[in-house]
Design a protein around this nucleic acid. Structure first.
Length: 696
DNA sequence: TTGCGATCCATTTTT
DNA sequence: TGGATCGCAA
């Protein structure tokens, strides 16, 4: 029984008898375990599992919690427990209760689609403000941020445009003008969504939230269904998500678990102050704390605590390590960007051969998915099996989107974004032709008419395929996997030409995966919505599996889970690992040079580093490169606030989180790499950045 | 009108 | 590094 494995404070939290509880749980204090124990406790006390809904930020986290709850109970006791992301849960509500929410048929669109719509709205208009270009992508960001934070357009522009770009010359009139200009675009965007029955990510939550607030009947029906709402990573909820949860507090219990020191989603509108305001927002709620860290050795905690304690913010956090003494974290200095990757690969191989470790003892964390690209190449070369978490998902790959666009037009024949994608997929149809076809297609009354029209009106090399593909999908629209399979057969020839560079190796195998994903669904719309919301990246690990197949040497490790994990820090919350590498802990990355303009963002970067450091159980390795003047910089360990004799160096190091790092906290090493640049190479000197940061 | 090749450019994080 | 954009040939 899982309850027996808890310590005193975890247990107290798990068996809480009051209505609402906030559990403040520091890194490694058993947050996940407590939430699992809570669910198990409720069920064993007689609560029906279908009345429990666990809300998390990633599908992976939800899946893991649910499966561990099930594993802790006798078979089939917890089958109906709900566990999903906020978005996925709201999508289920919209799908299961269409009459409650007034959403009988809709198409979920992702960010790429949003941007595509915005692009068509902007047309050739170039929006500029104070010499800052505002792209369609920026517009979508602004729009989404405003909605996630429930703030008005003027305030959002002030924050996202003026403050983020530090436009000191911005005037009130200028702002009003800009606001009016953007408002036009946003209204058109909303118009378009309505017209095409599109719901973007934010709509999915907003519609449900508004309904809860304005319609007591709907609210009580749903509250009646979900008596216990368990929220993981509560520090990362944003005002929109809170708007969704808040009305439920009357008749459901809210059980929230979080850690303000791990709040790293402010770019999505999260505000860790929601933790501090919890008892204000939820009258009668209690707050418990978990402080014993079971994950890491003391040396690792010392470093993490040091990083966090340098913050001017007071997190009121004392992580008490119970594991005791281990080995000191290592700080590896490399000469140039990316040269740490060969070194890491060698380390891993060494750990396997000399120290009896396995691949899955290793976790590699990076600030950006982008940065680890070369690492993947090194791992492939060295035949190290790995999986990648975070970064661009499976459903975002171009070839997958191509096929899904065909499913989408059959599902909703007014889905113009999908039409354009599907039509231009074919050779000989470009934007102009596709747009002109679209005009007619939108006026036809059903998809069968569209198919016939396309058959009669496309005189191309692929004439029959253009309409045939849609026809076969239509014929198998209640068996999604079959629809995918048949569509694929029709698209294959064009695919192999369009993606000739990496078709066989990289892209083709994905369609088998897509088919498997589709096999659970009997309606195109449900499949499309779910795969848009949870882009499935976590399940496929597509690039990895092939590498393993290719190398006979590594056959034995085919047993599924023995893989090195590569993850962005954002996706790594909740992960832990025996050995953890945090790469590129360099100046201008921690904090990121784009964050330096803003106090809150610097602090968020600090928390980001803190999250990374606290993933390690036994060994923590940081790598960094100190830029062009490597040898000299290495000597540099600027105490905070001091002035270096060298101004550009000082600028580079200013604000760097590892400045003033006490020598006894880490073991430093220097790695000379064979692949580093020769000394006389004139590297781009981008040190003339003004870090005019005001920390008051 | 489409599609390709050359050139430039900026480069966080995610549902 | 790749993506977006632009110009040019078919």
């Amino acid at each position: 029984m899982i309850l027996d494995e808890l310590n005193e404070s975890q247990r107290k939290a798990a068996v809480y008898e009051g209505k609402h509880l906030l559990v403040l749980a520091g890194a490694g204090t058993g947050k996940t375990k407590t939430i699992i124990a809570r669910a198990v406790y409720l069920i064993s006390k007689g609560v029906s599992p279908s009345q429990i809904q666990i809300l998390t930020f990633t599908r992976k986290a939800a899946g893991e919690i649910v499966s561990r709850v099930k594993a802790s109970l006798p078979p089939n006791q917890a089958n109906t427990i709900g566990g999903s992301t906020f978005h996925s849960w709201c999508n289920q509500l919209l799908t299961n209760f269409p009459n409650l929410f007034g959403t009988s048929s809709f198409t979920v669109i992702d960010e790429e689609d949003q941007v595509a719509i915005m692009k068509t709205i902007c047309g050739k208009n170039k929006i500029e403000y104070e010499s800052i270009r505002i792209s369609p992508q920026d517009l979508i960001d602004i729009y989404s941020f405003a909605r996630n934070t429930n703030s008005n357009l003027t305030d959002t522009i002030q924050k996202k445009v003026v403050e983020d770009h530090r436009l000191l010359t911005s005037t009130k009139e200028g702002l009003v003008n800009l606001k009016n200009k953007l408002e036009v675009f946003f209204r058109q965007y909303e118009e378009k969504k309505k017209e095409r029955k599109y719901l973007d990510y934010d709509d999915i939550i907003k519609i449900v939230a508004v309904r809860f607030r304005s319609d007591n009947k709907v609210k009580s029906i749903i509250s009646g269904h979900y008596k216990h709402i368990l929220v993981d990573e509560f520090q990362d909820t944003n005002p929109l998500q809170w708007e969704l949860l808040s009305p439920l507090k009357d008749s459901s219990s809210l059980y929230c678990v979080g850690d303000d020191a791990q709040s790293i989603y402010s770019f999505r509108g999260a505000d860790f102050n929601n933790i501090h305001k919890f008892s204000l927002n939820v009258p009668g709620a209690e707050i418990f704390k978990l402080e014993d860290n079971y994950r890491s050795t003391q040396e690792i905690l010392n470093l993490a605590n040091w990083v966090l304690n340098k913050s001017p913010l007071n997190y009121d956090k004392t992580l008490i390590g119970v594991r005791g003494i281990g080995t000191k974290p290592r700080l590896i200095n490399v000469e140039s960007n990316w040269s740490e990757f060969y070194w890491i690969a060698d380390q891993i191989i060494n750990n396997l051969t000399e120290r009896g470790k396995s691949y899955d003892d290793h976790l590699i964390l990076s600030r950006s998915g982008f940065y680890t690209k070369p690492l993947q190449a090194v791992f492939i070369e060295k035949k190290i099996p790995h999986r990648i978490i975070g970064g661009r998902g499976f459903m975002e790959a171009a070839h997958i989107r191509d096929l899904v666009s065909a499913l989408r037009v059959v599902n909703n024949k007014d889905d113009e974004i999908a039409w354009i994608r599907y039509l231009t997929f074919w050779e000989g149809i470009g934007n102009v032709k596709a747009t002109s076809l679209l005009m007619t297609l939108l006026n036809l009354s059903d998809i069968e008419g569209c198919i016939k029209y396309l058959y009669d009106n496309t005189r191309l090399q692929y004439t029959s395929s253009v309409s045939k593909t849609l026809e076969v999908i239509f014929d198998s629209r209640y068996q999604v996997d079959k629809a995918i399979e048949l569509a694929y057969d029709n698209l294959e020839k064009r695919f192999s030409e369009k993606y000739k560079n990496d078709w066989e190796t990289k892209r083709r195998p994905d369609f088998e995966v897509l088919e498997i994903l589709g096999s659970k669904y009997t309606a195109l719309g449900h499949f499309i919505a779910e795969c848009t919301i949870d882009s499935f990246s976590k399940y496929t690990a597509n690039d990895t599996n092939q590498n393993i197949k290719d190398s006979d040497v590594s056959k034995p490790i085919l047993d599924s889970n023995n893989l090195v994990t590569i993850s962005t820090i954002h996706s790594a919350k909740g992960l832990e690992s025996d050995i953890c590498y945090v790469v590129d802990v360099s100046p201008k990355v921690y904090p990121h040079h784009r964050s330096v303009t803003n106090f809150d963002r610097v602090e968020e970067d600090r928390r980001l580093l803190y999250v990374a450091l606290t993933r390690a159980k036994n060994e923590l390795v940081l790598t960094r490169s100190l830029g062009f003047n490597y040898a000299e910089n290495l000597k540099l360990n600027i105490p905070d606030g001091s002035h270096s004799s060298n101004d550009s160096l000082h600028l580079m190091m200013e604000g760097y989180f590892l400045n003033g790092l006490p020598e006894n906290l880490v073991d430093q090493e220097v790695i000379q790499s064979e692949t580093s640049l020769p000394n006389d190479v004139d590297e781009k000197n981008d040190l003339d950045i003004d870090y005019g940061m005001d920390f008051t």
